[in-house]
Amino acid sequence: MIEIIVNDRLGKKVRVKCMPEDTIGDLKKLIAAQTGTKPEKIILKKWYSTYKDHITLDDYEIHDGMNLEMYYC
């Protein structure tokens, strides 16, 4: 289990517990459940690279305690 911190810089900071095998889509669902936004509206970014839904966290080398940026579309 790893914990990831997702922050949109508008007042929402979510600490999500997930597995490295989870995809970005799953992560988005978890975030959506916690924040109350629709998962389709969430965009996860690290600097300028947006993460795609069908790829796992492990493949993106997202480890425990990493910070991700959250945007809405």
Partner: peptide, 27 residues
């Protein structure tokens, strides 16, 4: 506001995961 972190406990997340159709967390 900025300091507030929304977080769930492991059990809660596990519930959520199950509801979403994911396997529960291996602690």
């Amino acid at each position: 506001m900025a300091d507030e972190e929304i977080s769930l406990s492991i059990e809660e997340t596990n519930k959520l995961r199950i509801s979403l159709g994911l396997k529960p967390l291996s602690v």
